[in-house]
Design a binder for these strands. Structure first.
Lengths: 190, 190, 190, 190
DNA sequence: AATGAATGAGTGTTCATTCAT
DNA sequence: GATGAATGAACACTCATTCAT
């Protein structure tokens, strides 16, 4: 069944892209790891580049959904706190997917179709709400959002690359405190 | 003169690597853009990969120096504020170099020789000083540092990729305020 | 069919190696002459050098078999006589293969896997038998063998390179007479 | 002085050609080993190939002279015996030169200028004399000569390549005995 | 005369993609 | 639909030769 091929290829490709990057992974690598033929891959995706872009977009928008769900409702600072915790949780639960997203962002991000909601959009949205409701300092919305995103991405990266030994779960609290302390209007993150 | 070739190749290669990445840039591209022969390149670097790694390491450690110099002396929060301003200044002054560093970090960072001081080390050092002197909250040193680094990197990236239209110079103040507000002990960035 | 490619490449490569040597023959030459693509060659051999070594070993050990079969049974001098005749026959019947073996011996001989029987081994074996049975003079086995081998190789070479115009078939008898006269114990070649 | 360069290049080139063959030896290899610049080489020879051909021809004709001198005068069988002994002596005394001649014969022999006397000519001459004077059996002159040459070349090669462990000096007598026994008319080598 | 950096055509090899089976 | 052998345009890299100094 074709879904079978798609799943096997997706998992194999993400693992390989995460290890070596898209350019350094060959179609043969993927086919072998997935246990399918090289030709079969081309029945589901038009090219290796499109496979990579497709997988990236899928993972990226799935993460978007997941973060929005995790944010829930309530004041912006509380929602951001939950987003930070959840992002760290996702990164630790699926290191391959995380490495893939980190590694491929520069080549694949520009190919994500316009209109798809991204994790960046989710966080920018929450920050915008916070500014509107007065719970977040009235500064440039994107600049503040990228402080939050940067705290997440760089700490994840630091762990993926082995500099940070402590589990992200234990760091999430203090990191959220610092960030929210910095951007909340009342000076308290909760 | 040999310095001539080195300089021309370096500039051409950084520009091309910044546009297309190392893998997608061919040796012929570089040689043509630099106005030298392909063979000449191999008199100065043993391979394309080593050229890329060498340029990355050089720019990365130069940035390290530059940030350390800009930090100057005084309480850690003030030094961090100056680092943030200077990092934004560097990014805007040399967009090619910035794109190159952002794009190549995942492949070239592991190849930077151990013992070289990196921008990450510089910021971690200041944060450690701040924790020791009591001007920064006593949390995980690396986690706090990566909040600062993340704020810098993601805002730079956001501008390089065109999402952020405002010049970084105007954002530096508010961003530094938020970050320092979040991690300083007295609750004030200065 | 894969056997198809292997055969076409083998024949083309032997002809080209025989004319210009392995180093001076390009993979492009071989592919063109064989009527296959360059890539196809690499599905069957890992490199040009391994192709050359493989072809050499195959021809060399095939000649070994062929000489051993031709030697048949009986007193050593008679077997050697048949070997000389057969070697000359092989050289005249397949001049490309002969030129290839002569030209490539210095680079490919060291790569023939240990344990494979070579034409040298065949002749040394017969000479050893002859010494044991008393039909050949009791001198250094390898030295005597290389007299026989030398008579074959140099006369073949002399013809392949055009110095010797007479067909080897007519020279085989006198050459065998002289050699066997020289190394047989009774002083008679049969 | 130019003779200086010529000598240093000649010695270095012969050693390298003997180890790796002409094709696998680079001009840079030679220049480095000789302690001269690459350009200097081109002031004395027009190309690497001509250098190789020139060195081959020089060594080849020098060997020719040397063998003719060693042959001396007297009946052909005695002269051949002295040639065999001397050839083995030369091979053992200068292994580099020997390996160079063996390795390069197929590419360089055709380039030796016509009219130069070669070692092959020397031996053919002696054999022709022997046939004329009745000391050697009246068979094809070249065929008989190549028996002698083959005995020399293959035994030398066998030692150079390590199959034959015994020193050639101790094998020269028995080998000469066998050969001369085979081709002399009286049935005695002396 | 000597140097050695520069040249650039040519090499072996790879790999995304196609297509006969 | 699936296969995997075949294709051939690139690619990184080498090296004989030239020539400004």
């Amino acid at each position: 069944m074709s879904t079978d091929v798609r799943h096997k290829v997706r998992d194999a490709a993400i693992a390989l892209f995460a290890q070596k990057g898209v350019k350094a992974t060959t179609v043969r690598d993927i086919a072998r790891a997935a246990g399918v033929s090289e030709g079969a891959l081309y029945r589901h995706w038009p090219s290796k580049e499109e496979l990579a872009a497709d997988l990236f977009a899928a993972e990226y928008t799935a993460m978007s959904q997941s973060l929005r769900d995790a944010a829930g409702h309530g004041p912006a600072p509380e929602r951001l706190r939950r987003v930070i915790h959840h992002a760290f949780h996702l990164a630790e639960a699926a290191p391959d997917r995380t490495r893939f997203l980190l590694l491929s962002q520069h080549e694949s991000l520009p190919l994500v179709p316009q209109g798809q909601e991204t994790p960046v959009d989710v966080i920018c949205g929450i920050v915008a709400d916070g500014i509107a409701e007065g719970s977040i300092v009235p500064a440039d919305r994107d600049a503040l959002s990228h402080i939050v995103i940067g705290a997440i991405v760089l700490n994840v990266q630091s762990q993926v690359y082995g500099r940070q030994k402590a589990p992200l779960a234990t760091l999430a609290g203090p990191i959220a405190d610092a960030i929210l302390n910095g951007i909340s209007r009342t000076g308290a993150g909760q």
